[in-house]
Amino acid sequence: MNGQGLIKGLSVTIKHFFSPKITELYPEVKPKLPESVKADFDLDREKCIACGICANACPNKVITIETEKDENNKRRLKRYEMNMQYCLFCGLCAESCPTKAIITKQNFELAAYSRENTKRLLYQADKAPASETEPGAKE
């Protein structure tokens, strides 16, 4: 006591003054996230059997799924949309998928300029594939 604590504190801070800095220069240097990170989702259309379990597993009704019957009277995916503004990123959809058709991705830059762009169309029967409609890209 009697000022020793103050001096000790000063010595610690000056030690850290010369220690290497930890700042990440974000936009230039992008962080490499581990594979388990579930920041963005994609759909493997080959694997998807349009069962709708993911839509039911979602706590927040993020996933909209539309199906149609094909010529063999088999269910087929027509439209698959994720409304990312309600997403909790819990990963329950990917976990519940029986065929592991939902892929988690590490792209975390999901910010978009308008509310419309937060919707992610992962599949539509007669439209361009999903990954080309990245959110925010349109604006």
Binding site: T13, I14, H16, T23
Partner: peptide, 10 residues
């Protein structure tokens, strides 16, 4: 800058 350096940031 000095504050940043004391706090291990830039």
């Amino acid at each position: 800058r000095v504050a940043g350096f004391f706090q291990e940031r830039l």
